[in-house]
Amino acid sequence: MSNKIKFGILGGGENSLIGGLHRIASSMFDQYKLVGGVFSSNHEDSIRFAKSIGLSSQRVYENIEDLIISELKLPENERMQVVSVLTPNFLHFHMAKLLIDSGFSVICEKPMTTTYEEAKILNRSLQKTKSIFAVTYTYTGYPMVRQMREMVISGALGKIQKVDAQYYQGWINPVIHDSEQRSSVWRLDPNQSGISCCVADIGTHALNMLEYVSGHQVKSVLSDLNFVYNDNKMDVDATILLRLNEGVKGVVCTSQIATGEENSFIVKIYGDKAGLKWEQENPNYLYFMEEGKPLQVLKPGHDYNSKLSLSSTKLPPGHPEGIFDAMGNIYNGVAKAIFKEDYNASEFPSMTDGLRGMSFIEKAVQSHHKGNIWVDLDE
């Protein structure tokens, strides 16, 4: 058998954007071989999809239980080593728990679970194994985001005093203003999505990014959520004030009703000497702002960047790298961990990041419903 990592996928079948993203990302460094999975809740659809991407139907299973039982019967050097969980939120916990307990490594879409309690149970299960667990906060894989992190660590900004993340989308507008649609889509159904839509979907990206690049942890939040209609139970817009360690203050503004916006994610970190700004829709530009000096624009692939940034860059300067490359860098980090190679812990988001994301969701919702008060995150 090939020495590539054999992996499977749960979900991500026909017409799935996220499925294509994961499959392409896994192939970038030539480290993985997709061998099977459960691509749809309908077994026939799953088999048809597998054939459409050139995959044998031999290891296309009816459900996760069938996958685990069948894979564990195979010789160790042939079975799946890692499984990517790309299903709707409410299935993440059950699937990830079964996989961890059966000895598989897991790459899980965010939010990691639908409740913080589930996340803590997953974490306890992981501690009993040697499995690797990654949560795909994809944007941490961009070369210039990693450069941003390294510049903060090196002291280029001085003492951090302000963090700011704005993540605006407009995709839910046609849904939210149609009473029939907003009562039928899974993202606005608490039974499938959890207690939050906007904060869980993109707010956790903002939290993770601010903590990743600043090196500081959010300690407490004060949130104001927007539901637009009284019969809608899920937030679609949020403004959240942050208090971080060492007296740092910040804000997260997220919206899925920002009319006309596509995927506008802007991250800003300000120190007492300089500031940094990065925009997801123009990911190759990192803006370095020093007091009293001209604006500097840093780009990937140049020798002035950090080792972490350069190791995440696949193309020469001037060639754009995007979301597939970012996800590919996360898959590559997981591969290094599975192969027990030396790797930087910041090369992929971990179970800890997933835990903090779930705590953030619950505390943000709690803050709003308690009258917009400060609520502490768990350590």
Rank of each mutant, 00 (worst) to 15 (best):
M1A: 15
S2C: 07
S2Y: 06
N3K: 08
I5E: 00
I5P: 00
K6F: 00
F7Y: 14
G8T: 15
I9A: 14
I9M: 15
L17I: 06
S26F: 11
M28S: 15
M28N: 13
F29Q: 11
V35G: 01
V35L: 04
G37K: 12
G37C: 10
G37D: 15
H43L: 12
E44H: 01
D45Q: 05
S46F: 04
R48H: 02
S56R: 00
R59M: 01
V60W: 02
Y61G: 01
I68Q: 05
E71I: 01
P75D: 02
Q81E: 10
V83K: 01
S84Y: 05
M95G: 04
D101H: 10
G103Y: 07
F104T: 11
E109R: 15
T114V: 15
Y116V: 05
A119T: 08
I121Y: 03
I121T: 09
L126T: 00
Q127G: 15
K128C: 07
S131C: 14
V135D: 05
T136K: 13
M144T: 13
Q147Y: 09
M151Y: 00
M151P: 00
A156D: 07
A156L: 02
L157N: 08
I172G: 02
H177E: 08
S179I: 14
S179R: 11
V185R: 11
W186I: 03
Q192C: 08
D201C: 13
T204Q: 11
H205T: 12
N208F: 13
L210Y: 10
L210T: 15
Y212P: 00
G215S: 05
V218S: 05
V218A: 08
V218W: 01
L225Y: 04
Y229T: 08
N230G: 02
K233G: 04
D235Q: 09
T239C: 06
I240T: 09
N245Q: 11
K249I: 09
K249S: 10
S255E: 08
E262G: 14
S264K: 14
V267T: 13
I269A: 12
Y270K: 12
D272S: 08
W278P: 00
L286H: 01
F288T: 03
M289P: 00
E290T: 03
E291D: 08
Q296R: 13
N305G: 04
S306V: 09
S312V: 13
D325S: 12
I330T: 08
N332F: 15
A335C: 13
A335Q: 05
D342E: 07
G354H: 04
M358E: 07
S359H: 06
